[in-house]
Design a protein around this nucleic acid. Structure first.
Lengths: 192, 192
DNA sequence: CCACTACTAGACCGGTCGTCTACAAATGTC
DNA sequence: GACATTTGTAGACGACCGGTCTAGTAGTGG
């Protein structure tokens, strides 16, 4: 199995789905963008849903790598790394004109009620994201940087949710204001 | 112009779009559900996008009516009314099996980057929602119930965003946990 | 009885996902 | 080196659905 053809489909599809949504994006469009003929698709994937599952896995890995790079860096304190992570995300989103938002969040919204397997995959990916945040929060609490009565897991979950909501509003307003507000309320108030 | 035929299309369409998404839902499906013939659609709406705009307006009005009913009730203090509002929403969402989520939030996610007019309509509707929350927060602050240094407008915006994020995660996890977490962190911690 | 608006019917063309058959290239086996 | 088998490519095809539009019918007011 030529891994790179399959990967080309996922890369091109990931980009298109991120911009247009899963249902709005047709197989033909993805395959044209990837330079792969229609017939090959069903050699690599059983169905569009099967492709979606691979896409979710791809997004999850991409995010995990990025998060690990920023959150596990051996610099500064844990809280500073956390703040730096969100600032970096905000700058990336600004560079894109506040479009697209979170690939996983978009998919979650679009397919949660329509495809149980994809919903489960997204849910699993989100738990992974929350887990990474929780680890840093635990370090931060142990370092005495944040209130000791904040449960790292619950706080991480809340952060993830508030962040996804901020991204949603960002898309709707085409403004970075919600992201700055997130940092202000969550990082500077909640964790103060 | 038979207003009720138009309204029937909006009602049936609102329900379907809420469940399946805007792009996933076809005109035929909506019109069949409304018992209106296909050909009539373009008498009442210029395009699917035009229909979408009407739908957003419809959602916004529905939400505004509900919010006013709970938030402007002359009972209890403003903070208690706010809490009651979110509890009511949580119970409604639980009764639906944590599906669908927020009609406006879903649309925001789906069409913000694809239809500027619809994005603007959603943005306007969301500002209306945030404004209602801000009003109650201002009352609450004046009553000394919440910290005086909380800006009602920014806090309301943050609440709205955190709530939308909680709804997103709720859909993905098919669980009310994110909603309770929202109440816990926002109502009990942030506004404490 | 006519003019006009309000509304409907269904054709239209392009696109959708998914299947299928035919073919090429690579790999393994003797 | 010859052949069989796997691995991958190619794209036509079917059945259906998408949004849109034109031609037409019903209904109303004068």
């Amino acid at each position: 199995m030529k891994r790179d053809t399959r990967q080309a489909i996922i890369d091109a599809g990931g980009d298109l789905v991120h911009r247009q949504g899963f249902h709005r994006t047709g197989l033909k469009e993805i395959l044209d963008a990837a330079g792969v003929p229609k017939g090959s698709f069903y050699f690599y994937f059983r169905s569009k849903e099967d492709f979606g599952l691979a896409l979710i896995e791809h997004c999850a890995q991409g995010f995990a790598a990025l998060a690990d790079q920023y959150l596990d860096a051996p610099l500064d304190g844990p809280l500073a790394r956390l703040a730096g992570f969100f600032v970096m995300l905000r700058e990336r989103l600004a560079a894109r004109g506040y479009e697209r938002g979170c690939p996983l969040g978009n998919l979650a919204q679009e397919i949660s009620d329509l495809s149980p397997p994809m919903r489960q995959a997204v849910s699993h990916a989100m738990r992974g994201m929350a887990g990474r945040l929780a680890r840093v929060l635990a370090q931060s609490r142990d370092a005495g940087e944040i209130p000791a009565d904040l449960d790292p897991d619950a706080t991480a979950a809340f952060m993830l949710e508030a962040w996804e909501g901020a991204l949603l509003r960002m898309k709707a307003e085409k403004s970075g204001e919600p992201l700055r507000r997130f940092e202000d309320f969550v990082l500077h108030r909640l964790l103060r």
